[in-house]
């Protein structure tokens, strides 16, 4: 069986590498090459595709906003979710079960279903076309998963730690801040990365709530649609996609072992 599984694992991995390589290679071809010879190497690499994608998609407008959103929503979610998950996981009180379920319910809410009510609310607050408004939406929609994830994390910590801290005369806030939270570092990091991946590519809420401001995924979406209607210049399109995806891949590669560690710690004891 192991003889069977090895090739399966390797072919899965190689295929995934192939997908990424294909994406990168296609971004260096001419469009006719992409279409007529999708599996060949580019005759001469068309680096100009990148310049063209960068200027015609105007990614520059969106990069800073996307960075602010990703960092802001990552931190904001953790600031809100970690304390909540802590009391839900570690405290014995009547409502902790129902409240945990209440948060998990949010995982099942489809984004299009709540878009219009949120729009009306943001409009009342003057938060349409504002990064702050979008940030609140990102944080709130991240919360169910974050609480779900961190609750598992906190409950995996041995309870002797808290008892020992209490015996040393450490107050509950201090115990949380100085002992429990640092122990979840790998989980917080994993959560942050997972959220960054999600928010970096988010288009639906951004499209709905931003009007003049842009994010990088919005410029990409716009660029893709424009490309498809007026001259399907696939090579340039691939270059644009690479511009958005490659930072993400690099972030992942840089963090991957810590990410995986964190995920595992979060999902299991």
């Amino acid at each position: 069986m192991r003889l069977l599984a090895m090739p399966l694992a390797w072919s899965l991995a190689l295929f995934d590498l192939f997908v990424v390589a294909w994406m990168a290679l296609s971004s260096l071809k001419t469009t006719r090459e992409v279409v007529q010879d999708p599996w060949g190497l580019p005759a001469s690499p068309q680096w100009s595709n990148y310049g063209e994608a960068w200027t015609s998609a105007a990614f520059g407008d969106g990069v800073l906003n996307s960075l602010l959103l990703v960092v802001g929503s990552g931190l904001g979610t953790i600031v809100l979710a970690a304390p909540a998950a802590y009391v839900l996981a570690r405290f014995r009180w009547r409502l902790s079960g129902p409240v945990t379920i209440f948060f998990a319910l949010g995982l099942g809410i489809p984004a299009p279903a709540i878009m219009i009510p949120i729009y009306l609310g943001l409009d009342r607050l003057g938060l349409i076309d504002s990064l702050g408004g979008l940030l609140i939406v990102y944080i709130a929609t991240n919360l169910p998963f974050a609480v779900f994830f961190l609750t598992a994390f906190f409950s995996s910590l041995p309870r002797e730690l808290e008892e020992a801290a209490a015996l040393d005369g450490s107050g509950p806030y201090r115990t949380y801040w100085r002992i429990m939270l640092p122990l979840t570092r790998s989980g917080l990091l994993a959560l942050f990365i997972l959220q960054a991946i999600g928010d970096w590519g988010e288009t639906f809420f951004a499209l709905s709530f931003l009007q003049e401001k842009k994010t990088i995924s919005l410029t990409l979406l716009n660029f893709i649609q424009t490309m498809q209607y007026t001259g399907a210049r696939w090579s340039v399109l691939f270059a644009g996609i690479c511009i958005v995806v490659i930072p993400l891949l690099l972030l992942y590669l840089w963090m991957s072992s810590r990410l995986i560690e964190g995920i595992a710690a979060g999902y299991g004891k």
Partner: peptide, 22 residues
């Protein structure tokens, strides 16, 4: 002018529910 691209109408419609049409 906002050069919104093909999604212009889709992202415009929700604003009709409000007093602030962009």
């Amino acid at each position: 002018v906002q050069w919104k691209g093909r999604t212009a109408m889709k992202s415009f419609l929700p604003s009709l529910n409000t007093a602030n049409v962009p």
